[in-house]
Design a binder for these strands. Structure first.
Lengths: 222, 222
DNA sequence: CGACGGGTTGATTGTCCTCAAAGCCTGTGG
DNA sequence: CCACAGGCTTTGAGGACAATCAACCCGTCG
């Protein structure tokens, strides 16, 4: 079908369960999205919380003329769509065929009052998202193309937990829109890193990347 | 002394009080920082939470070679330094002479368990920071210089609540490091907006800006 | 097979950065 | 009181990095 390496057998932590009301009152169900399909849109009411069982998702904002900024990629095990406002602030789309577990979102107020441990979890996750966004602002505002791509590879390496090989689920355009670049610039940066001996391409479609010299990448990440 | 227009009489909401332990156990004190002085550094342990009584503060990250990304400006009434990790993720500096109220931070765990309304407040503030960062990622990743400056002026207009005049407390370099530009580019963009008739300069130091045509600015903000 | 999506690479353009100079204001010290 | 230094801003000239436009290759799928 489609070579996206993160069909990791679902030893997915069951964090999501903690975000529902008592397990008896709301069921957790699985849902499947085909690649390219929208899961929810920006400004739509936030009704569910999602956790990825397999696949990958992109969250993005659009400008009126179509320019796109991807704020985050969600990979296996990640929770997304967790707003505490009434509406989503991003559009979420399946990058590849994706299975999610979803559960009806409780209103923030009820969550916070119902269970303090749960409220704590909510805060930890929000803070984690905030931290990622803060780091990404530095990348988008001040790093060069090569530095951005190196940082991206290291992030994916860390999060995909591959055995030395990063199997990217997303295309060059997605990477570009995540890094504030164009797809050509991303491609050129990858070629340059290949020429430097920092990485090797494995798959036929250039999405499987072996990080040969992590130190060199880390040095570029500054 | 120094013309920074936000010496707004402190009808500062007392949100900060809610973040302390019981009012009896921890005192809230005021503190003064001279312009340019550091309030706390990145990676330092987070011991206090701050609220601005008068003045303004910049929060930034640095790359090893000195490139700087300002993540946020904090204005009168704003709370900052509120980490729930053990350490600060930004360096905070007074932009102008600044008075803050500060209070000893409670550990996140204790806050969350002690008072659910308080935990809720904490989450709301963190989410508000997250939302700002998300919007700023779009700006940094995908907007042109002119669009960034227009967006910046509208943000400051909204937050400084001036009577038609935005009295910026920060210099061009700070604006540039907030918008991912150079100070020259910021200056040129402002000159262009002036030529377009979107704004007028008032003060001798070019920091007081009257927004003449907000619609034009909003159109640029896309 | 041929169309299509995805990726790479080349040539050229353009936006923004860099380097530089000048003006203005403020504050300081003779 | 005035001269001068330093910080901040603007503006210009030139250059660089990334964007744009375009061609081509490859693998997949109808």
């Amino acid at each position: 079908m489609f070579a996206h390496g993160n069909a990791r057998p679902a030893n997915v932590p069951s964090i999501l369960g903690g975000l529902t009301a008592t397990p008896s009152s709301f069921a957790i169900s699985e849902f499947h999205y085909r690649r390219g399909t929208e899961i929810y849109g920006e400004k739509e009411p936030a009704e569910y919380v999602y956790q990825i069982v397999s696949g990958a998702v992109r969250s993005y904002k659009l400008l009126s003329d179509g320019r796109r900024q991807i704020g985050a990629f969600h990979l296996v095990g990640d929770i997304f769509g967790l707003e505490n406002a009434e509406t989503h602030r991003f559009t979420a789309e399946a990058i590849v065929d994706t299975t999610v577990r979803l559960t009806k979102r409780m209103s923030l107020e009820r969550v916070a009052h119902a269970d303090s441990a749960l409220a704590h979890n909510l805060l930890v996750m929000t803070t984690s998202n905030l931290q990622h966004a803060e780091d990404h602002m530095l990348l988008l505002g001040r790093k060069t193309a090569l530095e951005r791509v190196a940082a991206f590879l290291l992030e994916m390496d860390r999060r995909l937990t591959g055995v030395g090989v990063v199997a990217l689920p997303m295309c060059r355009r997605d990477i570009a829109d995540y890094l504030g670049l164009t797809l050509e610039t991303v491609s050129r940066a990858l070629s340059k890193l290949h020429a430097y001996g920092a990485l090797n391409f494995l798959g036929s479609n250039q999405r499987e990347i072996m990080l040969v010299d992590r130190d060199q990448l880390a040095a570029l990440d500054t």
